[in-house]
Design a protein around this nucleic acid. Structure first.
Length: 404
RNA sequence: GAGAGCGUAGCUCAGCUGGCAGAGCAGUGGACUGUGGAUCCACGGGUCGCGGGUUCGACUCCCGUCGCUCUCCCCA
């Protein structure tokens, strides 16, 4: 065992894993730019209150999953557990609401939650998130879901989009009461965890996986039946737009989210293979106000890059790798060849092994080189080099004049 | 916070009911000083996660501990 290991839940990202990660990230970033989102780089640390106010005091994230600490002046800071809170803070602090009718931002970076690591879950993980500020139109919700859907399909990651509406401050309180009453009635059928959830966060009981709970919840009142007129219309419009955009979705009346700031639309893209949420988001029409800005409706989503990476099966082919093998007293000539090839934009490795041709070819083979460039005394004298395709074994002569 | 499995060479792993620590791959050197992708030969490499206990003797059995992986809770 090495003397020093990385901290639990904090991983080195390298090799094949990193290539998959970059593949996912690049693809989503391009997609976001096509939808005219502008990047913002946000700090990893915020005042603890920013998260408490945004995510909700009684959520698990705030109660037990934050890396919080005091700075030298005794103020409470925290490593961000998600991106929206910081994005909203930045929107308000930089008064972006004064610039344009609406603002579309995206960000990418590490998030931190102190949970037990397991498959697709780390204490430092990475998200790309996007937020649209300033429009209440359900068209925005639909476009965001469309973006996510296109991204996932093009990435080749099978997933199902689920949507729901969880109402607003007008209609949700009544639903909460009705649901709580219902749950009291069936409490003898609920699992231990749900009995606890019933009082703390009744909506969460709805998506419990325990079969008896699922059964007990079957007759529960649904949020969609309690939506006020405004929320009902919003939800109906959203579905209409999704159809117009040919985005397949599944309504899940039991879909709820773990953060308190959501209103109206919530959605998730779930992987059937991993049985895990890959991308999640929704509307949060009160959060900007909550963090001191003017009343501003907003919608957003966040994608988990590690989870997405797990589902990437094929990577695009890499640029072919050239390797220059000098043998004999020809280093000056070989270096000129290397320089020239690189200037043509080729990916070039120079053999660092001073050995016979055979050994160097073995080395090139082990390094997965596509083309080998043979440079020996004859080549130098004759002003050429030999280009050998390591796949086919074919070899061609290429004229080369180092003076040019 | 709760539960389960696993820690032996750089990697993948074997090692029986306790009795000298092993293989394959990788690495290094070399028959071959101008042709690789399974030619041959040789070599190096270990605190068996750590600590304690049982025993004449522990990689093996017991206890503890740390780490990794997975599951639940929760979440991207």
């Amino acid at each position: 065992m090495p003397e020093f290991q990385s901290v639990r839940g904090f991983h080195d990202l390298l090799g094949e894993d990193l290539r998959k990660f970059r593949h996912v990230s690049q693809h989503l970033r391009e997609k976001l730019k096509l939808y005219n989102f502008e990047e913002v780089v946000l700090p990893v640390v915020e005042y603890l209150e920013v998260f408490q106010r945004s995510i909700g005091e009684v959520t698990d994230i705030v109660q037990k999953e934050m890396f919080a600490f005091k700075d030298q002046k005794g103020r409470w800071l925290a490593l961000r557990p998600e991106g929206t809170a910081g994005a909203v803070r930045a929107y308000v602090q930089n008064r972006l609401y004064a610039l344009k009718p609406h603002v579309k931002l995206f960000y990418e970076g590490p998030m931190f939650r102190h949970e037990r690591p397991q498959a697709g879950r780390y204490r430092q993980f990475h998200q790309i998130g996007a937020e649209v500020f300033g429009s209440i139109d359900p068209l925005v919700d639909a476009e965001i879901i469309q973006l996510v859907y296109e991204f996932l399909s093009e990435l080749g990651v099978p997933s199902v989009i689920e949507i729901n509406s969880i109402g607003c401050r007008v209609c949700r309180p009544a639903y909460r009461v009705a649901l709580k009453e219902y749950l009291e009635g069936v409490s003898e059928h609920l699992c231990q965890v749900c009995l606890d959830r019933k009082d703390r966060n009744p909506l969460r009981v709805l998506d419990c996986k325990v079969p008896t709970c699922k059964e007990a919840v079957r007759g529960a009142p649904k949020m969609v039946d309690f939506l006020c007129q405004d929320c009902t219309e919003h939800y109906a419009k959203l579905k209409e737009y999704l159809q117009l955009l040919s985005v397949p979705y599944r309504e899940n009346p039991y879909l709820v989210r773990g953060l308190d700031y959501y209103t109206k639309t919530v959605f998730e893209a779930v992987s059937p293979e991993l049985d895990m949420t890959l991308v999640a988001g929704g509307r949060y029409d009160y959060l900007v106000e909550e963090l001191g800005g003017p009343p501003t409706p907003a919608v957003g989503f966040a994608a988990g890059l590690e989870r997405l990476s797990l589902l990437v099966k094929e990577l695009p082919r890499e640029e072919p790798l050239y390797m220059v093998l000098p043998f004999g007293d020809v280093m000056d000539y070989a270096l000129a060849v290397v320089k020239s090839l690189r200037s043509e934009g080729k990916r070039v490795e120079l053999s660092y092994k001073r050995a016979g041709l055979k050994k160097q070819l073995e080395l090139a083979n082990r390094l997965g080189v596509s083309y080998v460039v043979l440079v020996g005394e004859e080549e130098k004298a004759g002003g050429f080099y030999l280009l050998k395709d390591m796949e086919t074994g074919q070899q061609v002569r290429v004229e080369f004049n180092p003076a040019l």
